[in-house]
């Protein structure tokens, strides 16, 4: 009896704790959204009240029509999506090879990749822009996508190695007896087993590339190729700052990610756990 009561208290405590955390987690987002519908006059009134007295769409009109944020979002989508696909393909092939074919060399390679991952982007931005300039890929989305591989592949490969280690080798042996070649085995037997890991890695990659800022700033010149993170930053750098527009733009950047999270969180949850090497 005693234990049951204690358990009830614990459950109640958990609800309280989670409610507080949830409020803290969501409050800034709510605040941005609510502010984005306020007129500038109201937003800059002090003291600030949370709820707007009247709603305005002015900020959103400016964000989409004048600043063409829709275009920037499209760029971010293209770049993030392409980098994610490439990352997953390269890292999955690589991780499988590391686990199955080249364990010694693979270990060295993974360590090298991690080491490179530890260098700050600020330091790498300059050599990358030089290299891209030489091959004529500066100020192109393709160039940016390639550079994004530099930080997403190490991360992805590292996680995926763990997942591939969980694949029982017997299954592959059975398939190879049936006459399948290595690539067929990889695609039809191995990949389905590590699918949750692949999805998790894809999601991490997508988020990291979606929020990336410095490379995008240094490597892209044209406004019509800029990603949202840079477009947002440049709003803040204006001599005449417009708080309302900034709030609307922030909302526009965050909301898709939140929706994305809601849709895929089932998959993230399947993520690292299965793959961590035990």
């Amino acid at each position: 009896m005693h234990g049951l009561k204690k358990n009830k208290v614990r459950v109640a405590g958990s609800y309280i704790y989670l409610t507080i955390l949830a409020l803290l987690a969501v409050f800034p987002l709510l605040w941005i959204i609510v502010s984005s519908f306020k007129s500038n006059n109201e937003m800059n009134k002090f003291p600030t009240s949370f709820f707007p007295k009247e709603l305005t769409m002015r900020n959103y009109n400016l964000v989409f029509e004048e600043l063409k944020f829709g275009n920037n979002m499209l760029n971010s989508l293209i770049v993030s999506f392409a980098s994610t696909v490439l990352t997953v393909v390269i890292a999955a092939l690589g991780a499988y090879a590391v686990v199955r074919f080249f364990p010694k060399f693979g270990k060295l390679l993974t360590q090298g990749l991690i080491l490179a991952y530890m260098l700050p982007t600020i330091l790498l931005a300059v050599p990358y822009s030089i290299t891209l300039g030489q091959v004529g890929l500066l100020n192109t989305r393709i160039g940016l996508i390639i550079i994004y591989l530099s930080f997403s592949v190490p991360y992805a490969l590292w996680l995926l190695v763990g997942f591939f280690k969980t694949v029982p080798i017997q299954i592959e042996e059975a398939a190879s007896v049936d006459g399948a070649n290595k690539f067929q085995i990889f695609v039809t037997v191995v990949l389905p087993i590590v699918a949750p890991g692949i999805v998790a890695v894809a999601i991490y990659t997508f988020i990291n590339t979606w929020n990336e800022f410095l490379y995008s700033l240094v490597l892209i010149n044209s406004r019509d190729k800029m990603t949202v993170a840079v477009a947002l930053q440049s709003l803040q750098g204006q001599e005449i700052l417009d708080w309302g527009v900034m709030m609307a733009a922030s909302t526009v950047v965050v909301i898709p990610s939140v929706i994305f999270f809601m849709c895929i969180q089932k998959f993230i949850a399947g993520g690292l756990a299965a793959g961590s090497d035990k």
């Binding site: 459950v11 989670l18 987690a25 800034p28 987002l29 949202v228 947002l232 900034m246 999270f261």
Partner: peptide
């Protein structure tokens, strides 16, 4: 805590995940 509760698990999990979606620039600004 999420493991312990029975109702509203998905809701809480979704709400708690929100900060992750923020780019640094917006985190700093807000």
């Amino acid at each position: 805590s999420l493991e312990r509760i029975k109702h509203g698990r998905t809701l809480f999990r979704t709400l708690l995940i929100v900060p992750w979606a923020f780019p640094t620039i917006i985190i700093a600004l807000v």
